[in-house]
Design a protein around this nucleic acid. Structure first.
Lengths: 249, 249
DNA sequence: TTGAATTTGCTCGGTTCTGCTCATTTGTGA
DNA sequence: TCACAAATGAGCAGAACCGAGCAAATTCAA
């Protein structure tokens, strides 16, 4: 999506002051309020700012990812709640990135556990919870996925051991191959596999078969699969055959 | 649901002072008390503040944030702005924890740079800025200081090189010894010293002599000291003698 | 230069926000 | 406990703002 010079100055401006008004912008940029409104609506739909009556404002914090969480499906919420039951007090829990693990983090609030993650969404859920010891893996911030990635993340994972890890994915093939779309995340997921004895895979029914480009692992590495009603029974049976427990949330 | 520009100012304000009054806000923002009341009620229902008779105050679980920000002062802001001028486009900038570096982060918004930090406050300032490449050092979340600490932080720093680092401190003795109160942060600061050729120390006038328990380093390691009017001239001269540049913001 | 596609400014009907009034509640000091 | 001043919430009229639609202006390609 191309951004015009005018839209660029709007963005620059909102970065500086935190908010802009339609009138002010129309005045300064010598265009009509209509044009400014159109720009603001476009920039808003692209996620660059939040449209408010009379102008635009910067997303003050993680509010807009919370909305994403709120929009996420009841199935994911059930999976998250079921997965939370697998965690015991005192556990060291490693959480992958993604919306499902973020909801799991919410479900784990108040528990006396240690959580390790490279997910900004998990961070936001737990940063104000005094009960949870929170360890952030280093890395480069990937804003579109609310996550940290890169060699620093991998290096941090190499120094870490968890009791139990929760993994998300973008798809699961019939032969139990766990897949992900974004290549850059796959090394992180594989490092998670190596950092924990018990691996729990979270996947709602839409992940069967689901899209994916890169292979992460197969059922041999998965201790438990937590999924929802409607997941492909054939694939689930393949998981059981290969030694994974399957939990229907 | 939405945060208008005006509601944003109210939030910013309450974060600085800890509480606001309806009259004061109506006066400063040039709107009627009715409008302020409506805003406060909305923000309160969203959980952003607690509504009290006559105004609003910070929510109890956000008080620690308040404590940190309440310490910010015009002097620190000037120092931050002056320090921002030392950064050039393309730089890899390492930011220590603390309120001054958080304000520096704010001043660096929109710049085409890479920022490395273990400060949650810096993260919050820059996480929505698409221009800045942001690298988070790993570590254990220390909620009271909005920072990451521990062996993971040190290990991450060992893999990192920056062009320029900005350091905060709790006090500076007359012999230029830079000090900090919190022992657990000192190893991090020392690792920062080793990860960057150019070290800039940020210290407002209240840091002379200022409190401190653990020694971090002396002027030999400091390339530039950015401070404010009122800093002890004798100490500043000692810095110059030992080869540091001194900038008065 | 011409013609199509895009952008811009304007109007208009509808919606949201604001400031005011006023009856009621809350906090304060005697 | 009582009285009074300040603050509050509800309701309402007017102002500000909104999106949609349309025609003029601009851009771009041929």
């Amino acid at each position: 999506m191309l951004i015009s010079a005018r839209q660029g100055s709007i963005l620059r401006r909102i970065q500086e002051t935190g908010d802009v008004s339609v009138q002010e912008l129309a005045n300064d940029l010598k265009v009509s309020p209509s044009t400014i409104r159109r720009d603001l609506n476009l920039l808003s739909s692209e996620g660059h700012l939040r449209r408010v009556h009379g102008g635009g404002s910067l997303d003050s914090d993680k509010i807009d990812f919370r909305e994403v969480l709120a929009r996420s499906s009841p199935a994911k919420e059930k999976i998250a709640n079921r997965a939370a039951e697998l965690v015991q007090d005192g556990d060291v829990v490693l959480l992958d990135i993604g919306t499902t693990t973020a909801m799991l983090a919410r479900a784990l609030r108040g528990r006396k556990i240690t959580v390790i993650t490279s997910s900004m969404a998990v961070l936001d859920e737990l940063r104000n919870d005094p009960e949870v010891e929170l360890i952030i893996l280093g890395g480069v911030l990937r804003r579109s996925y609310h996550s940290l990635v890169g060699s620093l993340t991998l290096a941090s994972l190499a120094n870490i051991r968890a009791n139990i890890s929760f993994l998300g994915c973008s798809g699961i093939r019939e032969d139990t191959t766990v897949q992900d779309t974004t290549g850059i995340e796959v090394p992180v997921k594989q490092a998670i596999l190596d950092s924990s004895a018990k691996i729990v895979l979270l996947a709602d029914e839409t992940k069967f078969p689901g899209v994916g480009i890169r292979d992460v692992c197969t059922a041999e590495r998965i201790s438990t699969l937590v999924t929802s009603q409607g997941a492909d029974p054939y694939t689930l049976e393949a998981f059981r055959t290969l030694g994974s427990e399957v939990e229907l949330a």
